[in-house]
Design a protein around this nucleic acid. Structure first.
Lengths: 224, 224
DNA sequence: ACACAGTTGGACCGGCGGTCCAATCTAGGG
DNA sequence: CCCTAGATTGGACCGCCGGTCCAACTGTGT
């Protein structure tokens, strides 16, 4: 009769929810969303699943906490005196965070009003209010801006996953533009396809923020 | 020596990629994205995995084809004479499609420029061009509007998954608004939280479309 | 010193996407 | 009409997944 197989000795440096979330962010940054498994986290921290599930309810909560960790750093600090500049800076901060951590793009689409999304809402809402938006108009403007930011970030993130470096990205966009132009002869498609390969996501994103700001300022207040 | 277990007899009604995609859409509509497994599709069609993988490369392709099937019906038909009304109708068509099929919201965030996304781009681009946008300005306007539509649809879809009927949705939003208001005393948060439970996603979505259209029309052309 | 709660490590479970192979059917060519 | 090759089908099997459960150990409080 053999004794049960001996376990690895117990760790001396205690785990914590913060360390587990940090390990998850590292794995997500290097291997993407598909690379994040609970087993990968246990391997990285040299521990067992019981330890992970003791600190985190499950994989979904781990992902949400990781996204909140990344977005929290963007929305944490105060903005500019000028609300337009502050909005631009904040939006760009979210975009850059998602450029650096593409997996956040998909994660923010997973749950409505999750802490990271609420953080973005709050940060932008403060400045929209300083821009003059009130009540229902504030709600509509906030919704439009946050949803645009999330939408653009998600598409950019999807692109970043597809082509991780600039050369690969340009090549991919050139092939796509050629296919798109061939598939549809419409003038709008031809013009957009022609510009697709060379465009800069960040510049285009900012242009969208400006379109929004122009719209908010020029749009008549409806029942506000 | 026993003979190998006998297989179910072969089907008489032949499968096709279209039938498989249709079955996938039905499963997604009833059980959501988590309910779509290749096994669920084999059960629904009373077939084996070999048959599925013969027609479809994998689960990802199945999801993409299902999303294209749904969005294709929206972008297929021609629009209004008035470009603003056509844009509004198209955007609302996408929103309603995603309201009816919430899983499409997440799927559109998964791949940049997938056929369904290009379809939305093309349809909106046609009318943005009629509105006067050209070249880089057309590209920027299209990007802004498409990304807003996708972002809003994704968030709405996430909400629809969370609370499938209106009563559950209102209750959920009331709880969330209370928590949000309690967590942050800022005036923008208090105002937005107060309006959260009662707001209509569809109305708010259209308000956002109007903000972007106003921005497109009023924004000075930059290097166009 | 003892007891209890918190933390840890890993065996085990059912289901997953996907591969591979044998069997069957259909279409085309001789 | 027959034969062959390719297309289509059905399901066994694989490794990995998220998650549960349980035993062992450690630290804290009485």
């Amino acid at each position: 009769m053999t004794s049960p197989p001996q376990r690895n000795p117990r760790r001396t440096d205690a785990l914590s929810r913060e360390r587990i979330v940090e390990a998850a962010v590292e794995i997500l940054d290097t291997a993407g969303e598909e690379g994040l498994t609970v087993r990968a986290v246990t391997a990285r921290l040299a521990t067992g699943r019981g330890a992970i599930y003791h600190h985190v309810a499950g994989k979904d909560e781990l992902l949400a906490a990781a996204a909140e960790d990344v977005i929290g750093r963007v929305t944490a600090h105060p903005g500019d005196d000028d609300p337009r500049r502050a909005i631009r800076a904040l939006a760009l901060g979210v975009f850059d965070a998602i450029d650096a951590h593409p997996w956040v793009g998909a994660q923010l689409s997973r749950e409505p009003f999750q802490p990271a999304v609420l953080g973005i809402w709050t940060s932008l809402g403060v400045h929209l209010r300083r821009l003059g938006a009130r009540g229902a108009a504030l709600s509509e403007a906030g919704s439009a801006l946050v949803n645009y930011v999330l939408g653009a970030a998600a598409q950019h993130a999807a692109g970043a996953r597809r082509a991780p470096d600039d050369a690969a990205r340009r090549a991919y966009l050139e092939r796509l533009a050629a296919r798109w132009a061939r598939h549809d002869a419409d003038a709008a498609v031809q013009e957009s396809a022609a510009l697709l390969a060379g465009h800069d996501d960040r510049e285009q994103f900012l242009a969208g923020v400006d379109i929004f700001l122009t719209g908010v300022v020029h749009r008549p207040i409806s029942g506000g």
